[in-house]
């Protein structure tokens, strides 16, 4: 395992060297939340490049803008100012339909509270991203089973999410995130609701995905130990990048 500081330095350098390999590029990102009376600056001039195959973690105190940054990277939220490019595609001008297609092909999400659809069986939950592609039912089934096998849950395909433990739910969420073979996985505190043993299991799966499949992973976490296992760490404080 590479110590966090060392890996950051190495990858920051490699990022500079391998500019052509940039998978996610954020330029001068600002996010302002406005209400009738208050204006809150959630992200302040963040510029960040993440390379293909990189495993980056984002840390910082609660409310510092970690999830907002992740949502902007994942095209789930739009920045107030700045540019987001993914795989050299400027996403600023994409309409709802194109954004949806882009998310479907390029991105996979893992949420702290899993966000599984409780009314659907595990297999149906996993095949969700494939519903929005032109893949046949047979193909969807096949890929979903393979994804569940990767996370060691092929024996729970016919279960409903409410019948699973927290760790199992998160593994289903990972299967759903990887079933469409996206190049990027964005994980928002994937181990936040789990005990340390379960958390380690989930982290191992993510590391495996990164190492074996070369998937670019960006993970928001509060856990220093988890962050240390990643290639690079970005720290935020009050919406500003401090590391």
């Amino acid at each position: 395992m590479i110590p966090a500081e060392t890996s950051e330095n190495v990858l920051q350098n490699s990022h500079i060297i391998n500019h052509q390999n940039v998978m996610i590029s954020l330029k001068n990102i600002e996010k302002v939340y406005r209400t009738d009376t208050v204006e809150t600056l959630a992200l302040n001039n963040i510029s960040l490049n993440i390379n293909k195959g990189e495993f980056l973690s984002i840390m910082g105190p609660s409310g510092c803008g970690k999830s907002t940054l992740l949502n902007i990277m994942g095209l789930l939220d739009a920045p107030t100012r700045g540019e987001v490019s993914i795989d050299k595609h400027d996403t600023t001008q994409l309409n709802d339909k194109k954004l949806a297609a882009f998310r479907n092909r390029k991105l996979g999400f893992i949420f702290q509270s899993y966000h599984l659809i409780n009314d659907l069986q595990v297999l149906d939950n996993v095949e969700l991203p494939l519903l929005y592609r032109n893949s046949s039912a047979k193909e969807r089934r096949q890929l979903s089973i393979e994804a569940l096998e990767k996370v060691g849950l092929s024996n729970r395909m016919k279960h409903f999410p409410t019948q699973l433990s927290g760790g199992q739910k998160q593994r289903v969420a990972i299967a759903r995130a990887i079933v469409g073979q996206p190049e990027i996985i964005l994980a928002d505190e994937p181990t936040g609701n789990l005990d340390s043993a379960m958390g380690s299991e989930i982290m191992d799966i993510l590391l495996q995905l990164n190492e074996r499949d070369g998937t670019t992973i960006v993970m928001v976490t509060h856990d220093e130990n988890m962050a240390r296992k990643t290639h690079r760490l970005v720290r935020l404080f009050d919406g500003t990048q401090v590391q």
Binding site: G74, L76, D96, K97, L99, A100, A101, R103, N104, R105, L107, G108, F109, H115, L116, I117, L128, P129, L131, Y132, R133, R176, G180
Partner: peptide, 11 residues
């Protein structure tokens, strides 16, 4: 979740 995984508003 559906939107995150690729469903457009019209879908």
């Amino acid at each position: 979740v559906r939107k995150a995984f690729g469903a457009s508003g019209m879908t």
